[in-house]
């Protein structure tokens, strides 16, 4: 045996568990506003993730139990489930999770070796392959023409059946981000659009509350030193600044910066997706560059791109740059900083 002979209590399992814990307030608010469907897709994604992880570990001849217990597969599953519409059919969740775990995690070498955020790869595959399924979001409580009960939601997810006489359009609607983009394209002005009932103080009704809950979860992670402030703060600042500049230039065509911060997956991305240590830079300067780039790209994709949200693609694009960023931002070491 070689020194050090003592270690600080702490494990990958514990880190991942705390991140999962930090997601729970967001999930609770989500379920409150949009119904329990999200809980079903999270459960489904979790089971798929664990099963896929076990099979892949077996195939790769790695010890199954220690890796299965590290909670990383669960985290991928939760993040993916939270990124796709809760009313998505069951196979969509399963396909996305399987792809995320097997292709984008294990084929790259498993835990610690994947260059791309697995959950975001899963999301990207789904939105490219099944765009229509990925854009029918559930309407928040009190907003749709009709509300589905738990049993109805279950039936729809697993069998694709809606109650008699109810169409999908009646229970789902576009997300505020999507809605805004469509209306702006058809020539409406900002001031006119935001009067619609799906918009609230900060972002969309309901979803802004979920975003706030994510902030609370992020604060918990910061307080427990699971993540550092560099990534979320830089990302949010970059998104805010880019959105702010456009809004200042033309307030009638560009949404206010706060709207961007509290819409879509901005908060989820800031505190839970970008902060994935495996796929983000390790140097402090690198973190600033990575997060600022992601914030800027998110805005560009949201406003000028064809996808409803930009977090996933911004993250993946910046993930590619991580080795380069790390290579060019190596800090000077002790005694070699040119001090007197």
């Amino acid at each position: 045996m070689f020194s050090p002979f003592i270690t600080h209590a702490g494990s990958v399992r514990e880190i991942m568990f705390k991140v999962l814990l930090a997601l729970t307030p967001g999930i609770a608010i989500y379920a409150w506003y949009f119904g329990p469907a999200i809980l079903i897709s999270i459960t489904l994604a979790s089971l798929t993730a664990l099963a896929t992880e076990a099979v892949m570990l077996k195939l790769r001849q790695r010890p199954v139990l220690p890796f299965l217990r590290d909670n990383s597969a669960l985290l991928t599953a939760w993040l993916l489930a939270l990124s796709i519409p809760p009313l998505a059919p069951w196979w969509l969740v399963v396909v996305g999770t399987m792809f995320a775990i097997s292709i984008s995690k294990h084929l790259y070498g498993g835990l610690g070796s994947n260059p791309f955020n697995p959950a975001m790869v899963g999301y990207a595959v789904l939105i490219i392959s099944f765009p229509s399924h990925m854009t029918s979001w559930i309407a928040p409580q009190g907003m749709g023409q009709l509300e589905l009960g738990f049993i109805d939601q279950l039936q729809y997810i697993f069998a694709g059946l809606l109650p008699n006489g109810v169409s999908l359009d009646a229970v789902s609607m576009a997300t505020p981000l999507d809605n805004l983009k469509t209306h702006l394209h058809s020539g409406h002005a900002m001031a006119e659009i935001v009067k619609e009932p799906i918009y609230s103080y900060l972002g969309g009704r309901g979803s802004e509350m979920v975003a706030l809950a994510y902030v609370a979860g992020g604060a918990y992670l910061l307080a427990n030193r699971i993540i550092t402030w560099h990534l979320p703060v830089t990302f949010l600042l970059a998104l805010f600044a880019t959105a702010g500049l456009f809004h200042l230039a033309d307030a009638s065509h560009y949404a206010p910066p706060l709207f961007h911060l509290f819409s879509g997956a901005a908060m989820l991305g800031a505190f839970f997706i970008l902060t994935d240590p495996v796929t983000s830079p390790t140097t402090i300067r690198g973190k600033f560059i990575f997060a600022a780039g992601a914030g800027f790209l998110t805005y560009v994709i949201r406003v000028f791109g064809g996808f409803p949200d930009g977090i996933a693609f911004a993250t993946l694009l910046m993930n590619i740059c991580v080795p380069l960023i790390d290579a060019y931002t190596q800090p000077k070491v002790f005694g070699k900083k040119g001090n007197k």
Partner: peptide, 28 residues
């Protein structure tokens, strides 16, 4: 001094960077 738990892959969490007195990048 209990034997340490089994070794897992590096997840690049940079806790080592935070504690390194020589300001190195231990994970690299």
């Amino acid at each position: 001094f209990p034997p340490p738990p089994p070794e897992l892959p590096c997840i690049r969490c940079t806790r080592c960077v935070e504690v390194c007195p020589a300001e190195l990048q231990p994970q690299d």
